[in-house]
Design a protein around this nucleic acid. Structure first.
Lengths: 167, 167
DNA sequence: AGTTAATAGTTTTAAATAAAACTAAACTGC
DNA sequence: GCAGTTTAGTTTTATTTAAAACTATTAACT
């Protein structure tokens, strides 16, 4: 045990001599955002999946069609930033489960207009309050000011990330 | 065209009658965090991968061993929240690439002590400034106060998510 | 009109991730 | 000291996800 410790301390010494730049992963923003987002997704998705049997992708499409009653796949793909293959599969599943209706456009036979069925709306109405409740609980400890700050910061960072990256 | 529009408006009307709860996906925090984190990861990972040929998992291990010169897989797994299989694979790859050294513990033959090789330290020293530069650019538009607010908010939300979820 | 290019959406293929089973070593408690 | 557990780490299997190829249809150009 003695040897191991000394060995480690020794290594630290030589290490610190060698390392010149320094970065604490736990304070590195990309890491922090990634960790937090992953935990949020994981926590929330248990509601979608275990309680309602749908995935996050499927929920997003549901949420989109809950806001805007008719959309085509391409629009959903752009708005939700999911690639078209993912949207295609999620739409197929929602249709199979009877939550979604697909109607071919009369003029342009490539596109289909998507909308929720009655049972789709029902599902949406069942999930939304749970989702909002989760969110409320999540931000529960923030003051009104902090909550506003948070959204403002996210707006700024969204803006900024666009300069670094577009897809 | 006329028909389609009328049809859509009609659908909206019946829709709004049916939908009672309301949620804007773009303002929903879980969605916002997910989107932002994904874009951050994607933007930054181009540095790791295209410039240095390593993945995000591999970078995390590198970053850990850059801070703390000797660790075992289990500790890395806990600190980075990656599961042990993922750590195992990333460690194997880093070793193969010559960035990492694995030494069996003399007392306990199950564990290996991991550390960076010289070329691992070199790689770390090459990546860190780029990563910090990226982060600096990312938060560039924030004031010092906003930057502090951001970290404080993330601290609070980290705290809060622990109540909703643990893994 | 006819060839080429573009678009919507699906399917196939390949790569990454997560889950579960597994190996080997080390404790635990008679 | 040896059956039963736990722990560290790897490997196998199954699921997801991302990338690329593909089909069908429409638009664009000459």
């Amino acid at each position: 045990m003695r040897n191991l410790l000394l060995d480690c301390l020794d290594k630290c010494k030589t290490m610190n001599e060698r390392v010149n730049a320094s970065l604490k992963l736990e304070q590195f923003l990309p890491y922090r955002f990634n960790q937090l987002a992953e935990r949020i997704s994981c926590s929330l998705s248990t509601i979608y999946s275990s309680e309602f049997g749908i995935s996050i992708s499927e929920w997003r499409i549901l949420a989109m069609l809950g806001q805007q009653p008719t959309m085509i796949s391409t629009d959903i793909s752009q708005r939700t930033k999911m690639d078209k293959a993912k949207v295609s599969r999620a739409v197929q599943r929602l249709e199979k489960l009877g939550y979604l209706l697909r109607e071919k456009d009369i003029q342009d036979h490539r596109v289909s207009h998507l909308s929720l069925t009655d049972s789709g709306v029902e599902l949406y109405n069942a999930i939304v309050p749970k989702a909002l409740e989760w969110e409320g609980n999540f931000v529960g400890t923030l003051s009104a000011q902090e909550y506003r700050d948070l959204h403002n910061l996210l707006n700024k960072l969204d803006q900024q990330i666009k300069h670094c990256y577009q897809k």
